[in-house]
Design a protein around this nucleic acid. Structure first.
Length: 463
RNA sequence: UCCGGAGUAGCUCAGCUGGUUAGAGCAGCGGACUGUUAAUCCGCGUGUCGGGGGUUCAAGUCCCUCCUCCGGAGCCA
């Protein structure tokens, strides 16, 4: 195949291409043909914008070109010229237009506006639309930003296992992994005999890599995981998916304040990175998806984040004149309406809530000196809500064991996790960032299904 | 899972207190047009009215049930 030019490079330095001949490969977005000439807008996926191609009746397949449908794959060679039209600075005057892959008139992606709901039903075509082209380029950039952030700070990227032994994580319903014949399962005294299963025990898809990350943080000091996680919860919301990606850093010799600092630095790095690398996409989101997006993101990057303790947050909520559906009471978890009020109305920006009552938080979170709260933190952002959840981990063997016993957890199941506290344990902390929620925050997209290429949610695993 | 809303043409939607041949815009197709930008102008076609059951002389419209989707809540990231 002859060398091709990416449309992105045409847009980034148009002057340098004027007068030269280029070949581009891409898909037809719109095609308008007239009696003796016509226009093709073609997009190759390299850039948010496509390029306009002019074809005239001196081409031997002029008639045929006029009949190419939206979605056709074309290879076009031509001269880059300054455009006499007002919509673009340059265009390509075609010397050859070759049909690589035909489309047809029943192509589902029409040259008109479509609802996101409809586009979800044609998930294989939606990356060819402006919005999803931008979304998934940003998603890729956010992933790169995350790796860059941690690698630059000498964190080790840990691949935590995707198949895990069950009952060792305790973060929601899990998808079972088995090779047993479901029509004829071997049974033991108390149900299915998992000793005959592939791994000789009951296994599931991971719901969190945190426990693995803790072990590795106590060897490498600074690690992060970044991979898929699975929750079999019957959650039907715009913020939950059954399969999603999570970033879970873990740092040793560190406390909750270090953890918060890391979270804040990371989030600001991601936002700055995307604003710098994808200005066209971000302007598009600001114009068509959320008109306050750029203002919100630049404010976030340039403003120190707010911190509130849970206790203080409860006081604020109780003292506000706002009427809540659920009453606010110390000891109760904050409801979505409370979190939204704090982030969207009280702080008007991202806010860290720390030191929650121990009874509403996980067993591994470090007990504070007041014996009532734990060193936990949630980062709440306007629009998305909880985007990060983290904590300083309980490093004291006896305190951890006591806490597990109080919650009825088996020390046997967590034997290696407990051993980390017996041999060279240190104060350490970490957090989990929902990758898709970060993408939603950065793009302004409101439904998690629209920031995942092929989303898995309850009752939906098409494609 | 709970609460609320919706499902009618390829898409977005209208269709009144049941009434006989179910509508519009857009997309598509055909034609016109020397510079379009979601082009414009003229012409053309399009339906298991989400599935099943029921009430009725008659159901897109009323009732029951199931399914799916959307918004909110819970669970969380």
């Amino acid at each position: 195949m002859s060398s091709t030019t990416e449309i992105k490079s045409l847009h980034r330095s148009p002057e340098s291409f004027v007068g030269t001949s280029v070949t581009i490969n891409g898909w037809v977005r719109t095609l308008r043909s007239k009696k003796s000439f016509g226009f093709i807008e073609i997009n190759d996926g390299s850039f948010f914008k496509g390029i306009q191609v002019v074809f005239e009746d001196n081409l031997d397949n002029f008639e045929e070109i006029g009949s190419f449908g939206v979605g056709s794959a074309l290879s076009i060679t031509g001269e880059v010229v300054e455009s006499p039209g007002s919509g673009q600075s340059i265009e390509i005057k075609a010397t050859s237009v070759t049909l690589v892959g035909a489309s047809s008139s029943d192509y589902k992606l029409q040259k008109k506006r479509h609802s996101f709901e409809f586009l979800r039903t044609i998930a294989h075509f939606r990356p060819r639309t402006n919005t999803f082209s931008a979304v998934f380029r940003i998603r890729s950039l956010v992933a790169h930003a995350i790796h860059t952030f941690f690698q630059e700070r000498n964190f080790v990227y840990l691949h935590s296992p995707i198949i895990t032994a069950s009952d060792a994580e305790g973060a929601g319903e899990m998808f079972r992994v088995t090779t047993l014949d479901l029509m004829n399962t071997p049974t033991a005294e108390h149900g299915v005999d998992f000793s005959q299963d592939f791994f000789g025990r009951e296994t599931s898809l991971t719901v969190s890599g945190q426990l693995s990350a803790e072990a590795y943080a106590l060897a490498f000091n600074k690690v992060y995981t970044f991979g898929p996680t699975f929750r079999a919860e019957n959650s039907n919301t715009s913020r939950h998916a059954s399969e999603f990606w999570m970033i879970e850093p873990e740092i040793a010799f560190a406390d909750l304040q270090d953890d918060i600092k890391l979270t804040d630095d990371m989030m600001k790095f991601i936002v700055s990175y995307v604003l710098e690398k994808a200005p066209e996409e971000m302007e598009f989101f600001n114009k068509f998806i959320d008109k306050t997006l750029l203002e919100r993101l630049t404010t976030f990057v340039n403003t120190p984040s707010e911190h509130l303790t849970y206790t203080k947050a409860v006081e604020i909520l109780q003292g506000s004149s706002k009427k809540f559906e659920y009453p606010v009471e110390w000891g109760q978890d904050l409801q979505t309406e409370h979190e939204r009020f704090l982030a969207e109305e009280y702080v008007k920006g991202p806010v860290f809530i720390t030191d929650y009552p121990k009874d509403i938080k996980a067993f591994y979170m470090r007990l504070n000196d007041d014996q009532k709260t734990v060193a936990a933190m949630d980062m709440l952002v306007p629009g998305v809500g909880e985007i990060v959840g983290g904590s300083q981990r309980e490093e004291r063997y006896d305190v951890l064991l006591e806490r597990m016993q109080a919650l009825g957890l088996s020390a046997e199941d967590y034997w290696w996790y407990l051993e980390l506290r017996k041999y060279g344990g240190t104060p350490h902390a970490g957090f989990g960032l929902g990758f898709e929620r970060a993408v939603m925050y950065v793009t302004g997209m409101e439904n998690i299904r629209d920031v995942i290429p092929f989303p898995r949610t309850p009752k939906s695993a098409d494609f």
